[in-house]
Amino acid sequence: MSLRQIIILITVALAVMVVLPGLGRYGAYIVYVVAIASIGALALNLLIGYCGQISFCHGGLLGVGAYAAGNIGNAGQDMVVALVGAGIVTAFVSVMIGLPALRLRGLYFAISTLAAQFILEYLFRLIEPWTHGVSGLLIQPAPFFGLDLSNDRGYAAIAVGLLVMSLIAVSRLLRTDLGRRFILIRDSEIVARGMGVNVARTKLWAFAISGFLAGMSGGLLAFTSRIAAPEAFEIALSVDYVAMIIVGGLGSLPGAVIGAGFVVLLPEVAQRIGETFGAATQTAALREMVFGLLIILFLIHEPRGLNSLASRAVRRLRRTSGPLSNNKRSSASDLEMTQARL
């Protein structure tokens, strides 16, 4: 992410925050749900898209973050402390889940994360003093830097702010040696070893960073929904997140946001279209099927996801709005190649 892109990102975020008061509670809710899902998808994209470690326990990790943040918040701490605490706890759990990755690869490791998901679900029900079992942990609103922002607009501002910080942090990280090592491991562990990369340590870093972001995302989810219950963090949520990064674009930062937006908003768009045509019940029944079909279509026709489609649309728009100079053409082409690599 270049400085120009960072400035654009911050400007968009500020624009969203300016618009927030006029959006109403429902609009603000949509904004923060998409932002929270985007942070979660970004975390998973870092692990799968950039480091090549397929994980099916992201829903469980969000749950760890939610319970951790809820407990810290209920103990009277500021939301910032709770979110950071949730990030640290989840990073630790994520590293534990990542340990088998030192011995397992590909599908075998994916299955081990699936097992981790089920273990986490079981623990959410079992560790009652911490999770309140099947009843779920009720979460009290917490101040944010001492301010009372416990309303939909406040949560939206916090979530958008955190999303921007996460995007910038991950994009910076990918330019460091560690980030490049992630990509090298994804492309070939053998080559990475040959180049002297400590594969085990690098993978665990990916799990830790991804876990930290997932924990913060889960923590935000807990404060906004006011409850952390086992049923909210089941395998279906993990599958939703995998779908988000496939639809948005594996190994792409904007893809995480676009995919999250798509998966979160699709039911809403389907509902509204159904209402417009007086067939809300029918579209509700068809929604899951349409969602599944779209994923299959993406996998077949555009494996690089919506982000790739968006990039192409932007290029087409530029072409129609005026001829590009040779320099611009080549830089656009470079950008595309870089995105494809990432």
């Binding site: 109403g24 509670r25 429902y26 809710y29 949509i30 749900v33 939909d152 906004t224 929904s225 409850i227 219950a229 049923e231 909210a232 039911p267 809403e268 509902q271 809300a280 019940t281 509700a284």
Partner: peptide
């Protein structure tokens, strides 16, 4: 009439729509 899909996030969204929209 909205579909909550027996999902907490969906039901929370529906509630806000009902109240404020």
């Amino acid at each position: 009439l909205l579909d909550g899909r027996y999902k907490l996030d969906e039901e929370q969204k529906n509630y806000r729509r009902c109240v404020s929209e």
